[in-house]
Design a protein around this nucleic acid. Structure first.
Lengths: 266, 266
DNA sequence: CGGGATATTGAGGGATGTCAAGGTAGGTGG
DNA sequence: CCACCTACCTTGACATCCCTCAATATCCCG
């Protein structure tokens, strides 16, 4: 496994003057220079309702820091003191947390535009770890500063609450999945969800490369990696997919959908 | 099953003047009269950090409405428009949501002092339903008013965020449970959690009556009711519990704990 | 006392976990 | 450029836990 190197983020985020838009000034080895939020093409994802200029202005005032993470590196660790939320700028990450027996279990995969770290708010330290599945870039937002700002800005406050609640809903749906579904159903739901999220970002929903291992998928879906592998093979035999390692071509989407909510129809 | 009767809550909460502390004035058939939050003995649970008088004053200004729910009745329905958060005052409720195949799955059990309905914030309608397991009482808080208030009050804002994040963390832990654990481990974790929450409320942690059916527990833990029943019997044979229908006596707590994180030790 | 909901227990089968043995891809260094 | 190495993936055989189906028992409430 890759050596873990976590750079002290406080230094990056707190010490640089706000609104220093100079993107060419002395980039450190592990992060990109700061820049105004207005330039962030993912702003709409991070704060979907911020159409009012006031909200945008507020966002510009946020203490922001970009950060690069190499594949396999951790962005934060379970139990670590919680200070920042992160928006994924590019690449893919996974969240995971330890079971009582010390095994790491994947609780989510995160693509560009998604906000992570919200589970740290409750107890002041992260409830899960975040690991890069490939070389990735994130945007760090000081949570203390964000809440301070939210106090005077309904827009930001509302968005934060919505993001949190959205996390709750996502996990509820995953709970249902883990509680009732067969391996076939789980993988079908997983692939359709992946496909839909890729499409929303302008990628092909039917031809993509997964960034996670079979073990990651299995851990996420509550299955062993062998069962995941077998299920991929089964889907291929059913002519639903063409599978080549992590490259997936969906050849029968409606077939997948039929499996995803199987018991609803038969 | 009991007939469902949902009273129009908007009427109750919006139409009554604020701070009408008269608890004897014309109570409707389905709810108690309004009263100041200061009189609420569960205030500390709902907003744990509100020691400053300013926060308490703010809470007094919240649009609050008490509401009675009979056993089996629904407080709100999945998909219903989201307007209120609810704090459980007395009794016990369960949350549940539909699987793709239309089966209702339990996602949580709620005891006095717990805040429910947070999953509705994300999309403006409830992501789950809440059903009373016995005759219960809740306190309705207008979400719109609460956020408005939070804009000027860091205390309330922080508490809201913490409650939400806490919900996320609880669900994360349940995810881990559902993904990896055996029936024995699941039930042990469930019972210990129940025990701990009862103790925190001043009840015996080792001698209590569960309010939910075997089917509810099974649905929550991702097991069938038969497996739950068998596991109770097994625990009894192992002299961990004495089980009499829903009455539980924990006779070997450390034994339960050993099962709950079994793989950690052997 | 009766009826419906709830709980217990048994028998059998199936889906998935476990253990094991290759196979494949991609990166690294000679 | 090739050989190797490591991580990842596939497939098989077998075991097992839990689900399904079914019968009976018990409790609670009217």
């Amino acid at each position: 496994m890759t050596t873990l190197r976590v750079f002290p983020l406080e230094v990056l985020v707190e010490s640089v003057p706000l609104l220093s838009a100079n993107r060419d000034a002395s980039p450190g080895p592990a992060y990109l220079p700061k820049e105004r939020c207005t330039h962030c093409h993912l702003r709409a994802w991070c704060l979907p309702d911020s159409n009012e200029s006031s909200a945008v202005d507020c966002m510009d005032g946020l203490k922001l820091g970009r950060r690069r993470i190499r594949a396999g590196q951790r962005l934060y660790l379970e139990g670590e003191s919680f200070k920042f939320l992160y928006e994924v700028r590019s690449g893919n990450l996974k969240s995971s947390l330890k079971t009582p027996d010390g095994i790491q279990r994947v609780s989510g995969f995160h693509m560009a535009g998604e906000l992570i770290g919200l589970d740290g708010v409750a107890e002041g330290h992260h409830a899960s770890s975040a690991t890069a599945l490939e070389d990735s870039e994130v945007c760090a937002v000081s949570y203390a500063f964000l809440t301070e700002l939210a106090t005077g800005n309904v827009q930001i406050q509302r968005t934060l609450m919505q993001q949190m609640s959205g996390e709750i809903v996502r996990e509820l749906r995953l709970l249902v999945l883990l509680g009732n579904m067969t391996a076939h159903e789980r993988l079908a739901v997983f692939l359709l969800n992946l496909s839909q999220r890729l499409q929303a970002r302008g990628y092909s929903p039917s031809d993509f490369r997964m960034r996670m291992t079979r073990a990651d998928i299995g851990s996420y879906l509550g299955l062993t990696l062998e069962t995941v592998s077998r299920t991929f093979s089964a889907f291929q035999k059913l002519h639903l997919l063409e599978v080549n390692q992590r490259h997936i071509r969906v050849t029968d989407r409606s077939g997948l959908e039929r499996i995803a909510d199987m018991r609803a129809h038969g």
